[in-house]
Design a protein around this nucleic acid. Structure first.
Lengths: 135, 135
DNA sequence: AATATAATAGTAATAATTCCTATTTTTATT
DNA sequence: AATAAAAATAGGAATTATTACTATTATATT
């Protein structure tokens, strides 16, 4: 049961901390694999899950069918672009009150909420308006 | 391209309209299969996706790795119980303002948000406190 | 150094969902 | 009612993300 140190886990965490684009498990694998060629995909999955269970990273489910991971565990929200799929941190005021609003007329215990926003990111918006004006 | 009528699709929609528990594709299959024994699982999946694309039903992704479906397309929010997995409609005031809050300092276009709440449902809360007081 | 145990690599298995194709249904037209 | 065109189906194969299995290796403890 006692946790043992592993180079693979260190590299996975370190890689994730150096990124702000919320990569998926296979992106983590592809990158760590460059510096540590015989790491296995199973090890990446196992450690991402372990780190998430320990609370050292966060697992993001953003409706695209693949889990994303984030080394930033501070409370914040995400935007996923419907065009290019990129995941972006949102700087925004707190919306924590929604848990109270939801619990006002409910007989269970609300522990929390999952929220993410979607639409067209800044880059894709620019590309679209450029393509439009070119016609 | 023109849509053609099918008994299978009717039965799937009808079944879904008679339920308020947001079943998954295989639950839909298991039930419709009773009255229409040679319907295939692929047909259930295809029609659920088609109906969702047409906007006649809603596809719910609630973080449990399986898609749920809801015949109620009016805007409302869901609660998923971490104990028993049941999905419950929430009657609550609007939280639509969160889209504006999120968009205040963002350079893309926010089209909408996905929010669901989790915790312990009323039933499971009762069971827990009963088990606790029995000690 | 010896031992115990956690972690790994590599592969097999699982689960949800989508894809494929020959056949059947539906719908429009005669 | 018969014909023809297109959509939908059944059944099974394929895909994708993820987890499980197991013999071997790495880590930590005495």
């Amino acid at each position: 049961m006692a946790l043992k140190h592993s180079k693979q886990r260190d590299m996975i965490k370190e890689f994730l901390m150096g990124r702000k684009d919320h990569p998926t498990a296979d992106v983590v694998y592809a990158n760590v694999h460059i510096q540590y060629p015989n790491i296995s995909l199973g090890t990446v999955y196992r450690n991402l899950s372990l780190l998430a269970d320990l609370g050292e990273i966060k697992r993001l489910r953003l409706g695209d069918g693949v889990d994303h991971f984030d080394a930033d565990t501070s409370p914040h929200y995400h935007f996923i672009c419907s065009e290019c799929g990129s995941v972006i941190d949102l700087k925004m005021n707190s919306i924590e009150t929604i848990t109270d609003i939801a619990g006002a007329d409910f007989d269970g215990q609300i522990a929390g909420h999952v929220t993410y926003f979607y639409g067209t990111c800044g880059n894709c918006s620019k590309v679209q308006s450029a393509a439009h004006s070119a016609h």
